[in-house]
């Protein structure tokens, strides 16, 4: 009945902070759309407002002007169709792996048996079976982020938002987790329908994304929107791969 909306529509979002009456513009006229099956990365140098943009997109912060529509409706922070993965993992230190993963389900009042079954499924999907009753402090960094991912997937969101999810990990763990994310992404049985990821690593963006949105440094403006049509699995040694990386580099510098 309703005309089809894009999953996420970002309409001319601008964000400024005001200090002592002076305006500090962080984001300037960001506009793009996200459809199902999109894996989009936003790249930009540190301080270009990527985290701020993501927080606006999931409704944690209000834009100074412009708006964000999720399936045609203004976005809300507690929207159960959107889930978030954090750079610092943001796990609750006093909850076990299972309890952390159940967090969103508990908030949605999912009955206990269903909740446990769902948590088990996603803990298994990220390879954490065996660590169900461990506390975050007992896990390595990579495993902590797996919990973060399982917690996000457990609410079966349409859109998964990730803010530099691999930046606090060592390079090896990060690479391993990137590949596992792609494995999960390629499984049509599993949520989400679309991924929006923010990163400062151009290589990472080219390695993962179908589409890359490039932000300039302060204020963050959209410099380019590129479709990465490299076949998967991608090899970071190939010249085509490096062609893309170099192109984005030249756009930012």
């Amino acid at each position: 009945m309703t005309e089809p909306h894009p999953l996420l529509k970002v309409k001319d979002v601008t964000k400024s902070y005001f200090e002592d009456g002076k305006e500090f513009k962080i984001l300037d006229l960001i506009r793009f759309e996200l459809a199902e099956q999109d894996f989009v990365c936003v790249v930009g140098p540190s301080g270009s407002g990527k985290s701020t943009l993501l927080r606006i997109l999931v409704g944690l912060e209000k834009p100074t002007s412009g708006e964000v529509l999720f399936e045609g409706q203004p976005i809300r922070a507690d929207n159960p169709q959107v889930a978030m993965v954090f750079q610092s993992f943001a796990l609750f230190p006093w909850l076990t792996v299972t309890q952390n993963v159940e967090l969103g389900l508990e908030a949605q009042n999912v009955p206990l048996p269903a909740r446990q079954a769902r948590a088990r499924k996603f803990i298994d999907a990220v390879g954490l079976t065996g660590f169900e009753n461990a506390f975050p402090r007992e896990l390595s960094g990579g495993m902590k982020q797996r919990v973060g991912i399982a917690r996000a997937l457990a609410i079966e969101p349409l859109l998964l938002c990730m803010d530099e999810p691999f930046s606090s990990l060592d390079p090896l763990t990060a690479q391993n987790l990137r590949d596992e994310i792609l494995q999960l992404w390629s499984d049509p049985q599993l949520p989400p329908k679309a991924v929006l990821m923010v990163t400062h690593s151009i290589e990472e963006a080219v390695y993962l994304a179908d589409r890359v949105i490039v932000l300039s440094s302060r204020p963050g403006r959209m410099v380019a929107e590129l479709v990465i049509d490299l076949p998967r699995p991608r090899n970071r040694k190939e010249p085509e791969f490096y062609g893309w990386v170099d192109e984005i580099y030249s756009l930012i510098v």
Binding site: D78, F86, W94, Q108
Partner: peptide
């Protein structure tokens, strides 16, 4: 409370009593 932890609470829908029980009270212990 670290900003990310707050944001996690909000984006996973912890409000009111649940937020208090799972996030705020433990953080204050």
């Amino acid at each position: 409370i670290p900003q990310d932890l707050e944001a996690a609470g909000s984006s996973f829908g912890l409000t009111g009593w649940l937020r208090f029980r799972l996030l705020e009270f433990p953080a204050a212990i």
